[in-house]
Every structure is written in C-alpha cells, then in structure tokens.
Amino acid sequence: MRFVGIIVLIPFVVLVYLSLISPVFSYTFLSNLKIGNEGNDVRELQIALNADNVTKIADTGPGSPGNETNYFGFLTYNAVLRFQEKYRGDILTPAGVNSPTGFVGALTRLKLNTLFAKTSANSNQVLSPTDTKVPVLPAEKPTFQDLMKFDSSFSQVKPKILGLTHYDARRGDSVTVFGQGFSSEGNKIYFGNSGLYASAKSANGAELVFIVPETISDGKYYLWVENLNGTSFVENAESFFSVSEVSHSPPTIASLEPQKINISSTSSSKIMVTGTNFTPTNNHIYSSIGMIKNIPSSDGKILVFSLSDFERIAEVVDMKKNVSNGSIPIPIIIKTDYGFSNEKIYLFIEF
C-alpha cells in the first residue's frame, strides 16, 4: 500500500516541478507602446503584466487575467507605471529619471523581453535595444515629438507625414517632419504642385529635417514625401504648411486651472488654459483621451474647455468600476495653424 501511495504521488510531484520550470508565457516585444495603441502587442503586454499581482491590470472585467484586450487604455497605463516602478533599477535609473511614465519604450521593452522574450532553440539569449534596432529613447514622460515617433524597425513601409515642428515658416527656415517610412537617404519633400522640393536624410526612419527653399513663393502648401519606399501623396489633400516672411510663433502653455479635477466633475467644471500665441479660431487640444477641436480665444492667451468635451472621457468614467482612488495624468498639447506647443503639462483626473 505504501508503494501505491508513492506511485500516485510521483506524477503529482513531476507536474508541480514541470509547472515551476516551464514558462507560462513567452513573447518578444519589438514595438514601443502607449495609451491609445491597439493590436496583439497590447494584448500580449496585458498578459505579461497580469503574470504578477503587483502589475495586474485588473481583478475582474476587461484586462483582467483571461480577459485581456487589444486596447492600451488607462488600466494598462497604470499597470505599466507599477511595472516601471517595480523594476526602477533596470528602467528608470539608467535613463536618469525619477518617475515612471507609462510609455513602453526601449528600456521597458528590454525588461519585458528579459522576463518573457521568446528565444531560439537551446538558447538563453534575449533581445537588447541593439537587437531590436530601436533607438533608446529617454524613459521620461513623452513630448509631442516622442508621441509622433514610430519604431525605426518599420521604416520600410510607405512614407507618411504625422506632424511637423511648426506649420508656418520663412524661406531658409529649418523644419522637422515626424512620421514613418523615411529612407536613410533620397527623401524628397515636395511643396504641393509648385515643382519645388527639399532633399533630406533620416537617421531613424521617423524624422526628416529640411530647409524651406529660398525660391518658393509665399502661400499655403500640401507637403508630401517621396523616396524608394513610395510616396505619401494623396489626391486633393488639404494644404497645411504656410510659407511667409511674416513669422508666426507656435502656441505655448503656461498653466492649467485647475490642474487637478475629480472625475465626478466631468460635465460641470471648466478648465482654463493660460498661454500665448493662441489664435481667434482653430485652436485644438490633443490628449490621450481624445481631441477637442476649434476652441476660440478672444485674446490669444486663454482657452476654456471641460472634461466632457473629450471624445473618450466615457472610458475614464467607466474606470470608476475598477479603481477606488488615485489619479491619471493626461498630457495636454495645443495645436494652432502655426504649430504645436511642446511644453510638458498634465491634467490630473482624480478618483
């Protein structure tokens, strides 16, 4: 009888041992991820975060173990914050920053890959930032430029313009283009149907710097890029880049009032942005919870909006089901016809 007990026990012990030495989850993260991203990489990120109670997305509902989604929302953002804090020595300290960011950049991916990366057969090698061919970005809260950068390992796609440092320039000015699909050499930035173009190189497939031609006339132009990967040209596209000898400055943000607001005040409370170079119309607010278009400014110094104006505020309100207290930092960026603000300012939504 004693032998029977031992025989029954051995398979159990083997199963327990195998469960301890066999990885439950394996995935290699090659792309930077942030709030608003969608796709399988996000789902795999949620699975990885759910493997640890400290970084678990949620106990129940969307994002919880077994209910992972393809959307990078605020629950995922907060879980990434906890992951970066837990592995501060591997993620934040090397970048020289103090606070977690929620932005899954090269150092965060390196730590994820150290823990979870798929490896070749009989190999313990994991990917490093060099292996993934992605430039190591600072693990700080991303600026607008950071948000617009694409992973350079995907630079073989057709070129696409996602943003500029400014949308109003004089002849001879230097302008940076953010996007994807840029070649190391041979990029041509065309100015509408003028026949003029500027040549530019790209070190990472995501940025181009060009000089506005001295021979171009004043006016508004549609910019498009052409290289060996293809063209970003779109028929009948709207002109968005102005050339003029009169210099216009992009907007700046000095303050938000209030900067902290409770989620229960979504419809009643107004938020005031104080700054400079706002235009009478066509002031747009960009954020991680959507965009607010065409906010007027009578004096060029003040914009007023409310939380309910954001397109995805309902998602934040819905978080109250899973979050009892805390706050979410929402980056606020202003765009006018003359460019984007580049100040780091955050609106904190409290629960």
Rank of each mutant, 00 (worst) to 15 (best):
E85N: 14
P296N: 15
I47M: 15
N236A: 11
G181S: 04
G39A: 09
S242L: 14
I211P: 00
I334T: 03
G163L: 07
Q180C: 02
V234N: 06
G66D: 11
G36Y: 03
T279F: 03
F3Q: 13
E68H: 02
P11W: 05
I21N: 06
S244V: 14
F241Q: 08
T231C: 10
N277M: 09
K321I: 12
F154E: 14
A169F: 09
V212R: 07
Q180T: 03
A79I: 11
K34H: 12
L208Y: 02
F154V: 04
A198W: 02
V317L: 13
L303R: 03
L256V: 08
A203C: 01
P94F: 11
V97P: 03
L20S: 06
T176G: 02
I161K: 04
F116C: 10
N342V: 06
N229A: 14
I35G: 05
V323Y: 02
V4K: 10
A117R: 01
N262L: 14
E235I: 10
A237L: 04
V97Y: 07
N53C: 07
N325W: 13
N342H: 04
N37Q: 09
F241Y: 10
A51H: 10
M272D: 10
S244Y: 11
A139E: 15
G89Q: 15
P296Y: 12
N227A: 12
F348L: 12
V212C: 06
